[in-house]
């Protein structure tokens, strides 16, 4: 019996390690190859580690004419910071209102917002979005996209906050109400401070989502290429036709775009995972 257990354990570890290698390999190779020279990338792709590690690619990326890294980084940070801020404000307020608000039409709006999860018309709805922006004299740009995001409904986050607020003891806001606190006041003074752990989860997921965002920023920066965020710029570089000549730039740029998310994950991976399981599998 004992030997069978040890055998099973070894077998488990072997399978786990095989998948560990598969999970890590693409990223490992990308990061490792970003320290190779372009000729080594092309001539000896099988080598897993660079023979003569060099920072040249990174220096080239930072000074490249075809790829304005610093500017893209700036816009990536701008886009991410605004998105995270908006998401935190709107999802916490939305969740609170739907959990504790007593108002006519509450059910209607909640159902209406939920409906968005089930039916979507996809990319063709960008035309009317652009028309509306045009009507409001907001140009099609990254700023325009952020304007839309200010008003967007984050229904999954609303669900998360709502169920969290529902689980808080009602006596808290009842006593605040008796003391003369308004509905808005209860949110800022009582509920919001208690939401901190959940806000960390939502914030970190919003950070990951907006930093990684590609399709919408790509469409909205087609006419304003200098506003491209990093991910959009990297893909544009890879599609520019001279991919083979640019692999070193792409790999170094990719590595740098991965870095913030990887650092965030290594520090707060429990937030990533708790957000996931809280959102999807309940009971």
């Amino acid at each position: 019996m004992k030997t069978r257990n040890v055998g099973w354990k070894i077998c488990s570890y072997v399978i786990l390690c095989v998948f560990l290698i598969l999970a890590v390999f693409p990223l490992f190779y990308t990061i490792s190859a970003s320290f190779k020279t372009n000729s080594e990338i092309l001539s000896d792709p099988a080598s897993l580690l660079p023979k003569n590690p060099t920072f040249d690619n990174y220096i080239n990326v930072l000074n490249s004419d075809v790829f304005d890294f610093k500017n893209m980084l700036k816009y990536s940070i701008y886009y991410t910071v605004v998105c995270v801020t908006i998401t935190l404000i709107s999802s916490s307020m939305g969740g609170y209102v739907f959990a504790r608000g007593r108002f006519r039409g509450k059910k209607f709006w909640f159902l209406a917002f939920s409906m968005l999860m089930f039916f979507s018309m996809g990319s063709v709805t960008i035309y009317p979005l652009l028309q509306t922006l045009n009507f409001l004299h907001i140009p099609k740009s990254l700023h325009g996209l952020l304007f839309i995001k200010v008003f967007s409904v984050n229904i999954i986050n609303i669900y998360l906050v709502r169920s969290y607020v529902v689980s808080l003891p009602k006596e808290l806001d009842e006593s605040a109400e008796i003391d003369g606190c308004s509905f808005v006041g209860i949110f800022f003074r009582i509920v919001l401070p208690l939401l901190k752990p959940l806000m960390a989860t939502i914030g970190i997921l919003a950070f990951q989502g907006s930093w990684n965002d590609y399709l919408m920023p790509m469409i909205f920066t087609l006419g304003t290429p200098h506003q491209r965020p990093l991910v959009v710029g990297l893909v544009a570089l890879s599609k520019s036709g001279e991919t083979a000549a640019n692999w070193n730039l792409i790999l170094a740029g990719t590595t740098m775009s991965l870095l913030p998310v990887l650092v965030a994950y290594s520090i707060g991976n429990r937030f990533f995972i708790s957000g996931l399981t809280a959102g999807a599998v309940k009971g």
Partner: peptide, 20 residues
């Protein structure tokens, strides 16, 4: 580690796999 790939941007994943 198994969850790690999921935090990477889909567009970046596409670039990485196009390369390898």
């Amino acid at each position: 580690m198994f969850y790690l790939p999921h935090i990477v941007s889909t567009a970046i994943i596409a670039l990485v796999f196009a390369n390898i």
